[in-house]
Amino acid sequence: DELVREILGRCTCPDQFPMIKVSEGKYRVGDSSLLIFVRVLRSHVMVRVGGGWDTLEHYLDKHDPCRC
C-alpha cells in the first residue's frame, strides 16, 4: 500500500490517475472497472500484465493519460 501510494504521489498532475484498493493485491484503475493485480518483488511494485509482470511505473507510463 505504501509503495503504491508513493509511486502515485510522484504525479504532479492536477487530476491524478485514480487507483483504488479493492482487496489485498487488487486495485481498480482509472475510471473503468478494470482490476489489476499488484505485488511487491524485491522492493519493486509489480503489476500483472497479460501472462507476465511489469513494474507499476512502466504500467502508469502506458496507461495514465497524463504520462502518455
Score class of each variant (00 low, 15 high):
D1Y: 05
E2G: 08
E2A: 09
L3T: 06
L3Q: 12
L3G: 04
L3H: 08
V4T: 02
V4R: 04
V4K: 04
V4F: 07
V4S: 02
R5W: 11
R5F: 09
R5E: 14
R5V: 05
E6K: 10
E6N: 06
I7A: 11
I7D: 04
I7G: 03
L8P: 02
L8V: 11
L8I: 13
L8R: 03
L8K: 00
G9M: 11
G9R: 09
G9W: 04
G9V: 05
R10I: 03
R10W: 03
R10D: 02
C11Y: 01
C11V: 03
C11P: 00
C11G: 03
C13N: 00
P14L: 06
P14S: 10
D15C: 10
Q16K: 14
Q16V: 09
Q16E: 07
Q16C: 01
Q16M: 08
F17R: 01
F17E: 01
F17N: 00
P18E: 11
M19G: 02
I20C: 07
I20H: 15
I20F: 11
V22E: 10
V22W: 00
V22A: 08
S23F: 02
S23E: 14
S23D: 13
E24Q: 13
E24H: 10
G25A: 06
G25V: 00
K26E: 07
K26M: 09
Y27R: 02
R28P: 00
R28I: 09
R28T: 06
R28H: 05
V29C: 09
V29N: 03
V29R: 08
V29P: 00
G30Y: 03
D31V: 10
S32Y: 06
S32C: 07
S33E: 15
S33T: 10
L34C: 15
L34R: 08
L35D: 13
L35Q: 10
I36F: 07
F37V: 14
F37Y: 12
F37W: 14
V38R: 03
V38K: 00
R39A: 11
V40C: 11
V40M: 09
L41I: 15
L41K: 10
L41S: 13
R42M: 11
R42C: 10
R42L: 05
S43C: 13
H44L: 08
H44W: 01
H44D: 13
H44G: 14
H44N: 07
V45G: 04
V45K: 04
M46S: 04
M46E: 06
M46T: 08
V47K: 04
V47N: 00
V47D: 00
V47T: 03
V47L: 05
R48E: 10
R48Y: 10
V49L: 08
V49E: 15
V49Q: 15
G50N: 13
G51H: 13
G51Y: 08
G51M: 10
G51I: 05
G52A: 14
G52W: 09
T55Q: 06
T55K: 06
L56A: 01
L56S: 04
E57K: 05
H58R: 11
L60N: 01
D61P: 03
D61S: 10
D61W: 08
D61M: 11
K62M: 12
K62Q: 15
H63W: 09
H63K: 11
D64A: 00
D64S: 00
P65A: 05
P65G: 02
P65C: 02
C66K: 03
C66D: 06
R67E: 02
R67I: 04
R67W: 00
R67A: 03
R67K: 05
